[in-house]
């Protein structure tokens, strides 16, 4: 009898411990708030139901959920591509799966900016509501026995507490938000939207957009027009962004458009007079136009301010000085 009670208590303890491990705090908060319908939290602006019917579906074969999910979001972003064409780019046979970095890189090759979202369920659903299917990674197994899977979020139904995915062999795969959150959480909340150049995410994080766009620019599969479009859209949204401003001026500089580069850098140091890299790049552009005296001033300012790139600033100043002595 006593042993039975002990077993029973032990079982409950184990169950409690397990449920503690698999909590879904974001879904809980979201659904609690929605069921109350108080409107007390103005950050929740989600509709009750959203379904992106027009997003295509590619039933996956075997382990190739990566190519299938990527083709789904690429097609939804008006890139005409089928999963088979992506297999060689993202599928690693020895791992029977696709690596996240390769998924991001492949999207860039097709002229799309891949932006990683914040680990925030509400933010993810906001993207869907704005018409963007979201590529997600899930761990369908357990943390110590992982079953990695890629799927695409195409809708949600808050009154029923459900999320809708294009997943595996099911076109509209409906699972509870909490189950989705647990599987998504075990894949480190990995979620990605694809942006055509000029398109913006609903995500408010300027630094995340800058990171995505600079990776897109570095991939260099696109012409500079597409890159400039992406910078312009970002600057329209975040007019004071030093990083985006620098990126655009740098693009002008590498294109040899020194006048545009100079006015870009001048705008930056007007916004942020203590930004050394801005002074350095302005100095270099003035130097290239043989406006040595002005160049020297800004190079000296950059050296005085210093920072992570102080060696570069020193080099700029040195070469301007040696040109002045000639």
């Amino acid at each position: 009898m006593a042993i039975n009670i002990l077993r029973c208590v032990g079982g409950i303890v184990v169950l409690l411990w397990l449920s503690g491990c698999v909590s879904a705090p974001q879904s809980d908060a979201l659904l609690t708030h929605f069921s109350q319908e108080t409107g007390a939290n103005p950050s929740v602006t989600l509709a009750a139901r959203v379904q992106l019917e027009q997003v295509p579906f590619f039933p996956q074969e075997d382990f190739q959920c990566g190519p299938a999910a990527l083709a789904t979001v690429l097609q939804a972003s008006k890139v005409d591509i089928l999963p088979d064409a992506l297999v060689s780019q993202v599928y690693v046979p020895s791992r029977q799966g696709s690596l996240q970095v390769e998924m991001l890189a492949a999207a860039r090759r097709y002229g799309r900016i891949s932006q990683i979202l914040a680990p925030d369920l509400e933010g993810l659903l906001e993207q869907v509501q704005a018409g963007k299917p979201v590529l997600v990674m899930q761990n369908l197994g357990l943390s110590w026995y992982p079953q990695w899977h890629y799927a695409v979020v195409v809708g949600f139904d808050l009154p029923r507490g459900e999320i809708v995915l294009r997943s595996g062999l099911v076109r509209d795969y409906r699972i509870s938000l909490t189950l989705f959150e647990r599987t998504w959480q075990r894949a480190e909340h990995w979620a990605v939207v694809l942006l055509a150049p000029g398109e913006l995410p609903t995500d408010e994080r300027e630094h995340a957009y800058f990171q995505s766009v600079s990776a897109f620019a570095a991939a260099a599969s696109e012409g500079s027009d597409a890159i400039q479009l992406a910078y312009d859209a970002g600057l329209a949204r975040w007019p004071g962004s030093i990083n985006l401003g620098m990126a655009r001026a740098n693009l002008f500089y590498t294109q040899g458009d020194l006048n545009s580069a100079i006015s870009g850098y001048e705008e930056i140091i007007r916004l942020a007079p203590d930004y050394a890299a801005g002074h350095n790049n302005l100095a270099q552009s003035l130097f290239d136009m043989n406006r040595l005296d002005e160049a020297k001033q800004h190079a000296q300012t950059a050296v005085n301010i210093g920072g992570s790139f102080s060696e570069d600033y020193r080099k700029t100043l040195d070469s301007i000085n040696s040109a002045l002595q000639r």
Partner: peptide, 21 residues
Amino acid sequence: MPAMADIVSTDQIATEQRNEI
């Protein structure tokens, strides 16, 4: 080849920002 002076590239700025985050 003298130490080539150059602009601080967008890549450098992005890496710096990533480190800071």
